[in-house]
Amino acid sequence: MLEVRNLSKTFVIHILGGKSIEGFRGVSFRLYPGEFLGLTGRSGSGKSSVLKCIYGTYLPASGEVWFASERLGRVDLARAGEQAVLRVRDGEMGYVSQFLRVIPRIAAADVVAEPLLRAGSEAGAARRQAAALLERLRIPARLHDAYPSTFSGGEQQRINIARAVIRKPRLLLLDEPTASLDRESQETVIGILRELKEKGTSMIGIFHDRAALEAIADNVLELANGSMEHGRP
């Protein structure tokens, strides 16, 4: 599904006189359909940067990101160009961060239904599907018409997850998706991720919580001092 080869990221900070800061270097791995790869390492080791380089939010300094796209075929996202990355993001690749950055003044259920509408679903059906998913994530119906910006951190995080999984992407990038969830919600989220995995979605995830990682990861990749090690969770 995904093959990352020798991926590296450096940031050149002009305000610091063009100082170069290394994000990570030499990251390579393969990810198969339905596989979950956990990224571990102390904070600052570049875990989030790896995910952002795959998603296209960061431009890698070097390396390749080969994605087996359904629509575009095998494509190197590091070099594919903006239109190709946008097309892959639209339905095939999802990203969940620990922070919610949604469009303001849109009801929670509409935020979650929006990816379905973009894919051409009928409005009523999309909203019903969104509501069902929110219910499952323990966001009560009375909140479905409220704006997520007013929600608690844990609620916002679940909105984020719901929005990312509702279209069942083929590749899902997860950056601490359960960081501010209570045990029960965390288990629900893991359950939803497991179902997606069984249907073939590949995932790369950063989990602060060791137990959550062990509950779902097939393999782990440890980033330390820019190098990496493969292992079992």
Binding site: I13, T57, Y58
Partner: peptide, 21 residues
């Protein structure tokens, strides 16, 4: 030029970095 999230989160040009910061 680039994807909006990329330009705002990983700006490369000196001027863009100044603008974003």
């Amino acid at each position: 030029s680039g994807l909006t999230d990329q330009v705002l989160e990983d700006p490369r040009h000196e001027y863009t970095q100044l603008l974003v910061s």
